[in-house]
């Protein structure tokens, strides 16, 4: 009887903690590896100027999404933690965008000395 009580206890306490299956984790790992091969392969393909970076970053974002969602368990976690991640990224974009507002629009790129 005590044993079964313990079992319900632990089930209750961790009812929200997601346990990933082995297959799931391996699938993510393999997908990440394949995407790495893909991005290296794509780097050898001639893609016109801005789009090579776009393609490389798209693959990187997909990989990062897989890691965050399934390795870091954000998919099953409280939405607030995902919000923190997205918020941090938004502020990073903000920093870059506003800095570029200066650096891209200067008359004289770097003052010559």
């Amino acid at each position: 009887m005590i044993l079964s009580e313990d079992k319900t206890m632990s089930e209750h306490n961790h009812h929200e903690h997601h346990v990933s299956s082995v297959g799931q984790l391996w699938a993510i790992g393999i997908a990440l590896t394949l995407l790495t091969i893909l991005t290296v392969g794509l780097s050898h393909v001639e893609i016109p100027a801005p789009f090579d970076v776009v393609v490389a970053l798209t693959v990187a974002f997909v990989k990062a999404f897989l890691v965050c969602a399934f390795f870091m368990n954000l998919y099953w976690d409280t939405k607030f933690n995902s919000m923190l991640l997205i918020g941090a990224f938004a502020f990073f974009i903000l920093m870059v965008a506003v800095t570029l507002l200066d650096t891209l629009y200067r008359n004289d790129v770097v003052p010559s000395f």
Partner: peptide, 16 residues
């Protein structure tokens, strides 16, 4: 969003 107001005379672009 406002940090550049410390830099009005630094040579930052007119747009910024």
């Amino acid at each position: 969003l406002v940090w550049g107001h410390h830099m009005f005379t630094s040579g930052q672009s007119a747009v910024a």
